[in-house]
């Protein structure tokens, strides 16, 4: 598929103040490209959830938006620590979030299931000690 646009955002671990800035920019750019309504909102929510997870749970990573003529793709790739039990992590209510994340209103264990619900296609791979990669596709038409 022909790539129209691609941009990557580095996301630092434990940077709670900046968390969400990449998603704000992603939403703004998609809007400029004419994406709107339900799909824009689904991309924005999934992007914010995955970005927050990078900040809260990972050792740092990168969020990449790629826009195709009929779809938008979000890829989150981090450098660890990896998720030991993916099935458990995908369950609603499972969370290992620390007190700081919880004090900000996160850590309910809703993020991964919410990403899966919002994306048209969702895949996650993770290796302990190596890192986690999440790929989400959103159809634009």
């Amino acid at each position: 598929m022909e790539e129209l646009f691609r941009i990557s955002y580095p996301v630092a671990a434990a940077d709670y103040t900046s968390a969400g800035k990449a998603s704000t920019d992603i939403k703004r750019r998609l809007k400029q490209l004419g994406v709107s309504g339900d799909v824009l909102r689904r991309v924005a929510v999934a992007s914010y959830e995955v970005e927050l997870n990078l900040v809260i749970h990972s050792l740092g990573g990168e969020l990449t938006l790629t826009v195709f003529p009929d779809a938008a793709q979000l890829v989150s790739a981090d450098v660890g620590p990896g998720i030991p039990d993916l099935e458990m992590a995908m369950r609603e209510g499972y969370s290992t979030a620390n007190d700081e994340a919880r004090s900000l209103g996160f850590g309910a264990g809703m993020g991964l299931p919410n990403m899966k619900r919002n994306a048209d296609e969702f895949s996650i791979t993770s290796e302990k000690g190596v890192g986690t990669t999440i790929t989400m596709l959103f159809r634009l038409q």
């Binding site: 969400g20 924005a44 929510v45 992007s47 959830e49 900000l104 209103g105 809703m110």
Partner: peptide, 29 residues
């Protein structure tokens, strides 16, 4: 905010006692 992000899917009003930047970012998304 985890619950709000997961369950709210209409343009609505959020009543909250939290005043951190993520309340605004959640509202924005």
């Amino acid at each position: 905010m985890s619950d709000v992000l997961a369950f709210v899917d209409e343009k609505t009003v959020l009543i909250t006692g939290l005043t951190n930047p993520h309340v605004v970012r959640t509202s924005e998304m």
